[in-house]
């Protein structure tokens, strides 16, 4: 099993994407999509040797919901700043330490933070395990760091580590 399917999460995701692109869930599409997913995940095994493990999938869904709500709130906040006749956001850089070291967890955290209009992930330093974030409307840097830790990092730690 491990030899044929080194990346089950990736293969499942590829199969779902294939079915969405084909807009049907017929047997032929499932068979072809499954074959493509297995071949692609075997090819990916050469590049990504360590397997992706979702330890608690429900927590992952919860993370996606939390991130979605935050993205909507942040969109409205940035919109209200931009609609101001002279936008003067109090932007600033935050440098914060992260406990999360898993590569996939970090990638997901980076995607969430950058997809949120109010914040952008700039750079991660692996040796110091610290990250540089730019915030559009910065009021209190410590509070931002605490919010990121509480809302995303704890969930990601439970899912990936």
């Amino acid at each position: 099993m491990k030899r044929i399917l080194p990346h089950p999460v990736l293969a499942g995701f590829l199969l779902i994407l294939w079915l969405v692109l084909q807009q049907s869930a017929g047997l032929g599409h499932i068979l072809l999509g499954g074959a493509i997913a297995i071949v692609a995940s075997l090819a990916a095994h050469a590049v990504i040797p360590e397997p992706v493990t979702l330890r608690r999938p429900l927590k992952f869904v919860q993370l996606l919901v939390v991130a979605g709500i935050d993205i909507i709130r942040s969109n409205l906040a940035v919109l209200s700043v931009l609609l101001h006749p002279r936008p003067r956001p109090t932007a600033g850089f935050i440098e914060m330490k992260l406990e999360l070291t898993n590569t996939f967890g970090l990638a997901i955290l980076a995607c969430i933070l950058t997809a949120t209009p109010g914040s952008a992930w700039l750079e991660y330093d692996r040796e110091k395990s610290s990250v540089l974030i730019h915030v559009f409307d910065l009021v209190d840097a410590n509070e931002w760091a605490r919010t990121i830790k509480a809302r995303y990092e704890t969930l990601l730690l439970e899912v990936f580590q």
């Binding site: 993205i71 909507i72 969109n75 940035v78 919109l79 931009l82 936008p87 956001p89 932007a91 850089f93 950058t114 997809a115 949120t116 209009p117 109010g118 914040s119 952008a120 730019h134 559009f136």
Partner: peptide, 23 residues
């Protein structure tokens, strides 16, 4: 429009994500 009106690159990097996320 934020891309035009904001004055620094690090501010402008936030503007297009509105179109790609919720817009």
């Amino acid at each position: 429009l934020g891309l035009v009106r904001l004055r620094d690159f690090y501010l402008r990097i936030h503007a297009p994500t509105m179109g790609t996320s919720m817009g």
